[in-house]
Design a protein around this nucleic acid. Sequence first.
DNA 1: GGATGTCATTTGTATAGACTTTAACCTTGA
DNA 2: TCAAGGTTAAAGTCTATACAAATGACATCC
Lengths: 241, 241
Amino acid sequence: MPSNRAGGSDSVGRMTYRDIKADILERILNGTWPPGSAVPNEQDLALEYGAARATVNRAMRELVDEGYVERKRKAGTRVRMAPVRQVRFEIPLIRKEIEERGASYRYALIRSEAMSAPDWLRARLNLKPGTEVLHLVCMHFGDGRPYQLEDRWINLAATPQGRDFDFSTVGPNDWLVQQVPYSDVEISFSATSADPEQAMLLNCHAGDALFRVERQTTWQGQVVTYVSLIYRPDHRMTTRY
Amino acid sequence: MPSNRAGGSDSVGRMTYRDIKADILERILNGTWPPGSAVPNEQDLALEYGAARATVNRAMRELVDEGYVERKRKAGTRVRMAPVRQVRFEIPLIRKEIEERGASYRYALIRSEAMSAPDWLRARLNLKPGTEVLHLVCMHFGDGRPYQLEDRWINLAATPQGRDFDFSTVGPNDWLVQQVPYSDVEISFSATSADPEQAMLLNCHAGDALFRVERQTTWQGQVVTYVSLIYRPDHRMTTRY
DNA sequence: GGATGTCATTTGTATAGACTTTAACCTTGA
DNA sequence: TCAAGGTTAAAGTCTATACAAATGACATCC
């Protein structure tokens, strides 16, 4: 075997796109190619790494994806001045979220009521006057302690099957995922003060600062559901990038 | 002009990987291939679309990336039962964040003090006893109103240049991005109650629920900085997916 | 000077073919 | 019945080549 490439070669000495990507990233991170500087073109890199241009291209495309470099035809590739700080995290089903923390999961339906959509909801979800909605309040427990309070509104015009479904054992999220698996979602994170009922359910004090996730799900132009997920005090949503 | 791209093919009738991806996604969304079902293998799809297998492969890889399908060698490709709900959003520099809301940006340094790291910070950042840190408190204003309170600790052992830098006009984040452009970041979102000083600075009431982002930045195994970013009341961080 | 056009460079994408890796499935044997 | 091992289908990757598309640089023309 002729070539001997330290740090990333198979038995034939061939570098994979991963090796190439890692090598380029290394040079960016260690300052060989500082922010703003130009990276050699694909042809030259292919030559240097003894790979096909397509292989270098794939490595580069991933580096673009991850925000390290910018590319322009004819102008070439440069290391980004300020990296694009992008967070990417998964929104697991609440059951999985709790179980992944090593706690046992329990679900409870607190309240379930079909009604005509109140004005604030109609305005928020852009519903026609008189639209029927299902209002559900549920609790999710981890190791028996309150973990998340779910306050959900389901548009019965969009999913009429929901009217007769029994949510006392299956959580509305699990059910909805079956009904409308792929949909557009708008999600937002904020802080809110516990009102007396929330404090009671979450076993904290009224006025406590709580972390809240709100999600609005749309399918084929129609809002399917709006949910407010309020976490127990001190909850943190953490990720690395 | 020969090519007519409407609908997904060029003049030769050749489909790009984007076309193929869109077509497959369409079939997933409209229920042709429901959750859990198997998608034809690459070879067959290549045949169907009149494309090379590599082209189909690229389309598929992106669908995996976006959480629509799962692939396993030998077993083939299936539509995911529950889509991987993943949020991906960018963390802009605060100046840009404010300006993108159409507001004017203003920065003010409230306090700056070099000191030996307090115990809680030492524990949190895993610093040696006696490590010197710079503690900065800054405000970011949008249209003259408080927008974000930045409470930052900089490890002077990692970035000694910070000791003599004047942060009264340049925000610490802008400065740090220059110093350590690429680093590992742990970010977390939570809610916190305004203490009296925070309330005063953010022009709200003590006890108000505030949205907080905490960020810890590591470079080459050493914690460079820890920052707590507290937003004015009612702040929401929103994204779509 | 400024608008316009041409050329060359670089990335973007497609292709056919080959080889590699994984793991589902089947066969064999205890 | 079950475990070990072989077979083989499918995705994963690489290569060499080709052409497309964008655009920076330069020349040309008015």
